[in-house]
């Protein structure tokens, strides 16, 4: 036991020295930083989280490594509760997507208030959605424009593949339903990749995938995009019209890729993580990857981000209410 005690004393004295030498003002992480991902491995959020990790690691943006941990349980509900419970923890950050707005509303029992339970850090990117059909789909062959598609969809027998009940794409289907007056059967899959494959494998007739999820099939000509739900065309998809130019300005929807931290981590830590994310954001490799992938670089931080969260939360409350 003597030995044990000695080791313990050594440890404690060691740590005192270390703690006291770091200056009180500048925040620097003392241990590896948990990067919680509120979605599964291989999804869009996971991809960005690992890209951020890779860029930060390669360029030494953080003094301690970022460790990605997937907590996809309950559409991100588990991750939200986990980070909420870590209030004051300066070594955890969370990458969020739009389920940040929808999950707390669909699962009231989680008791999450996104504006109070988290410290907003920064939004790096927004992703959009497109209407996809297969090139020679059984029910959609010969369709080349959104209007042709809508006319066909009004027959009401199309199947749409999506990423899960009450997820963004089903809400979006709900929006389109009330906008255009058509209905479709909704089949949930696990993940955007599986959704894209279901379309090409002729199981579904159309999907509302993110650009990157269909990129491979788009390049090989197996799938066609009819519209991009943005005001302007995207350089990665030059021939796909935007919803605004087709005359449907209400058909606009974005998927955000933003980072938050637990509540009450203090101004210094907030500044540190926002700075790290900004370094990643300004990295040439990071920017090129996302532009090629059809994403929009859209930095906001601090109060701007809180306002954005508030607006989006209210918007999703309306969409969810309209859907039900």
């Amino acid at each position: 036991m003597n030995l044990l005690k000695k080791v313990a004393i050594l440890f404690v004295s060691f740590s005192f020295v270390a703690v006291s030498t770091t200056s009180a003002k500048e925040f620097a992480p003392k241990k590896p930083i948990e990067l919680i991902i509120m979605a599964g491995q291989g999804g869009g959020a996971d991809e960005i989280a690992r890209l951020v990790q890779g860029v930060a690691e390669k360029n030494d943006f953080t003094s301690k490594p970022l460790i990605p941990i997937n907590k996809p349980g309950g559409s991100g509900g588990e991750a939200l509760q986990y980070v909420k419970a870590k209030s004051g923890d300066q070594h955890t950050i969370l990458i969020t997507l739009n389920s940040f707005f929808t999950t707390p509303q669909n699962q009231k029992e989680l008791d999450i208030n996104i504006l109070e339970d988290y410290t907003p850090l920064a939004r790096l990117l927004t992703d959009t959605f497109m209407v996809w059909i297969k090139k020679d789909g059984a029910k959609t062959s010969g369709i080349n424009t959104l209007d042709e598609f809508l006319a066909r969809a009004k027959q009401g027998d199309l199947v749409m593949g999506g990423t899960g009940k009450m997820s963004e794409d089903e809400l979006l289907l709900g929006m389109m339903r009330s906008m255009f007056g058509f209905d479709a059967k909704y089949v949930p899959y696990s993940g955007g990749g599986a959704v894209a494959k279901g379309l090409i494998g002729d199981e579904s007739d159309f999907t509302l995938n993110n650009p990157s999820e269909q990129m491979g099939f788009y390049q090989s000509g197996d799938s066609k995009a009819l519209v991009m739900m943005t005001p302007k065309r995207n350089p990665a998809f030059p021939e796909v019209p935007s919803s605004h130019e087709l005359g449907y300005p209400d058909l606009e929807y974005y998927m955000m890729r933003a980072f938050v931290a637990p509540a009450d981590i203090g101004a210094e830590a907030t500044k540190y993580y926002t700075g790290v994310l900004h370094d990643v954001y300004m990295n040439a490799e990071f920017q090129k990857f996302n532009i090629d992938d059809g994403k929009l670089l859209s930095w906001i931080e601090g109060y701007g981000l809180s306002d954005f969260f508030a607006v989006e939360y209210d918007k999703h409350t309306e969409i969810v209410a309209a859907f039900n």
Binding site: G42, E47, R50, G193, A196, K197, G216
Partner: peptide, 23 residues
């Protein structure tokens, strides 16, 4: 197809995308 058949391939897929390869 760009669909991971297992968690491991999901990570590999992420890696490929980072290398600039489109599955």
């Amino acid at each position: 197809l760009g669909i991971p058949g297992s968690p491991t391939t999901a990570i590999l897929l992420g890696g490929m995308i980072l290398w600039g390869l489109t599955p």
